[in-house]
């Protein structure tokens, strides 16, 4: 799997700048997670741990919103091309979810004061992702009011996994911080 990720990384870095390397590497990691999650069995359609979210949020915190957009979009596009779901309903759902969570992250980056920490960011992003997916599913594929019965369950899953990935991001940043500290 890591070989796979490296291959994707190579294919996206033709003219290389350090910035490109970084985005590609992180995107490749996110794509790998995305693909692994896509083959995991799911109790309910739409319920996935969303661990690729971890990468997006970490990138957002470390390198800002614009880089997070690139990583997130690359993950959705390349990930779906690799799985073979490009432009399919599955793709439309993760695409709209990604757009929604990026929109919320943009708002979060404009918050006054200390703003949101890793857990808050992951949580709002996960919930926005779920709302985005849900409304796309409702509008495009299943325009049926019965779908709303699933919303509480889906949102519960989003909250739980949002908090879990928030904790992961927090400890990730913690470790990174230590390493950075040592290097300096």
């Amino acid at each position: 799997m890591s070989e796979h990720a490296n291959n994707s990384a190579d294919s996206t870095t033709i003219k290389t700048t350090p910035d490109d390397h970084l985005v590609a590497w992180l995107a490749a990691l996110a794509i790998t997670i995305h693909i692994i999650e896509s083959v995991l069995p799911s109790p309910l359609p739409g319920v996935k741990p969303g661990l690729a979210n971890v990468i997006t949020i970490a990138v957002f915190i470390l390198y800002g919103w614009r880089t997070a957009v690139w990583v997130s979009m690359l993950r959705v596009l390349v990930g779906s091309i690799l799985i073979g779901t490009f432009l399919s309903p599955t793709f439309m759902l993760s695409f709209s979810g990604a757009i929604a969570s990026l929109a919320v992250l943009w708002l979060a980056s404009h918050l006054p004061g200390a703003g949101l920490g890793p857990i808050g960011l992951c949580l709002v992003a996960a919930m926005a992702h779920m709302f985005g997916q849900f409304y796309t599913a409702y509008l495009l594929f299943i325009p049926h009011d019965g779908l709303f019965k699933l919303l509480p369950l889906l949102m519960t899953a989003a909250v739980i996994f949002g908090i879990i990935s928030g904790i992961i991001v927090r400890s990730m940043l913690h470790h990174l911080g230590k390493r950075h500290g040592q290097e300096k």
């Binding site: 690139w70 979009m73 690359l74 596009l77 793709f91 695409f95």
Partner: peptide, 8 residues
């Protein structure tokens, strides 16, 4: 990316 997004 822009092209793909428009297509999508």
């Amino acid at each position: 990316l822009l092209l793909l997004t428009t297509l999508a």
